[in-house]
Each structure stands twice: as structure tokens, then as C-alpha cells.
Simulated scan of single mutants.
Amino acid sequence: MKLDEVRREYLRDGLRRKVLKEDPIEQLEDWLVQANELELVDPTAMNLATVDKDGQPSQRIVLLKKLDQDGLVFFTNLNSNKAQDINNNSKVSVHFSWLQLERQIKIKGVASRLSNTEVLKYFISRPKDSQIAAWASNQSQPISSRQFLMAAFDKMKQKFADGEVPLPDFWGGYRIKPTSFEFWQGGGARLHDRFEYAPSEFGWDIKRLAP
């Protein structure tokens, strides 16, 4: 496979300043709705980048579960690597990649823990097997085999066979308060359209960036 020969032209749409909303949250909502209506696979999946105590960046996919003017919300095990990274450095970045639409969104921000009330409200809305899986998985820790994981799941399934599954004290969520946004739309001859939203005294400044 000759990797240097793998390429395609991005010719689906352009992006112009006049069509952008003044509020980046509203613009993100607009693109999310379009991605969902077109039935893209996992339109709410976002790549979360964190940095550990040694300055080593790490990335993984998480699912956006709430979006409003307060920020972007996702949930996770609080003992996971990502949570430990955020405890050391709350500055994060998320990236949405919708290549079928030739679109990307990059968001920088600061992550903070959600309240127990917010976490419980979401936890009880999850399917029961997902609730049980939260108890069964010691996220980010080494395990001997898939069989070990499934045995832990079956054990918890028996434990919580009757009644509701309680919220684990090691499971929670984070809200990312955005500090900047970049909306990217592919263009022909690699002349992509990029617009950056940066906070200003009166809201958000919007600038076109060179591709």
C-alpha cells in the first residue's frame, strides 16, 4: 500500500462567514443536528485529548451526552487514565470528525467535575447492563483476559439482579467549558475553510484561518 498516493478531493461544500452563527455553541448544535439527521455513525463521538503529569498527551473517544451554554458533558470512570489526567491538568481539547460531511470541529476548554445530582440523573437513564458494566470494569487497569472481565460482569449482574443498580462512587462526569472553537470544512486543492471563535469582551470574535 502506497500511503503517499492515498488522497481525495474535498468538494462537498464550502463554508462562508455569512452562514456562521454568532454563537459557537449554536453552530455546533446545528452541525450536530445535520450529522444526526444524515444518520452518520456515532455523530456524538468526540476525541478527547488530555495531558498526564509527565506532559504526555493522550486521546480517546468519548460520547457527548449534553450540550448547552455551560459546555459539553461526558461521563467516565473517575479512576480512569483520562480522569487522572484531568485531575492534574484540567485543560483539554475535543475533536469531532465527520469525514462523510468533510467537516471537523476542534474545541479547547477546561474540564470540571459534575455534581453527584447531575451524574445520578444520567446514570439512572442508562440501560441496566451499562449500569452493571460500570461496576464490573476497573477502567484503565490491566486484566488477565476477556474471560476475567465477563466473569466480573456476571458476578455484578447476579448481585444486582433484583432492584435498581446504585451509582458507583468511582463513576462520574465532566463538563468542558470551551475557551475556543474551530470549524473546518474541506475544500478543493486543499484550500479548506477554517473559522476560529475566540472569546471577546462582547461575546465571540470570529476569524478565518488559512488552511
Rank of each mutant, 00 (worst) to 15 (best):
G109C: 09
L101M: 15
G172E: 08
F148C: 00
F123I: 06
S137T: 15
V119F: 03
N116E: 14
E164I: 10
M150W: 07
W135E: 03
I107P: 02
L99A: 12
D169K: 10
W171E: 02
T117K: 11
S93L: 05
S145F: 09
A111T: 12
I143N: 05
E118Q: 14
D129N: 10
H95C: 14
M150N: 11
Y174D: 04
P142Q: 09
Q104N: 08
K106F: 12
I107N: 01
F96W: 09
H95T: 12
K108L: 11
P142R: 04
S140A: 07
V165E: 08
K155T: 15
S115G: 09
L114P: 03
Q147W: 00
Q100Y: 03
K159D: 00
R126C: 09
Q139N: 06
P168N: 06
K121F: 00
I105P: 00
P142C: 07
N116T: 08
Q158K: 14
W135D: 07
A136I: 11
G109V: 02
K155Q: 14
K155G: 08
Q147Y: 03
T117L: 07
S125Y: 00
D154Q: 14
Q139P: 10
D162N: 11
S137C: 12
P168R: 05
F170R: 04
A152K: 15
I107M: 07
Q139K: 10
F148N: 05
L99V: 11
D129M: 09
S125K: 14
K121A: 14
A111K: 10
S115K: 05
F170L: 05
K159Q: 15
S93M: 05
K108D: 13
L99D: 14
I143Y: 04
Q158R: 13
V165D: 03
S145A: 10
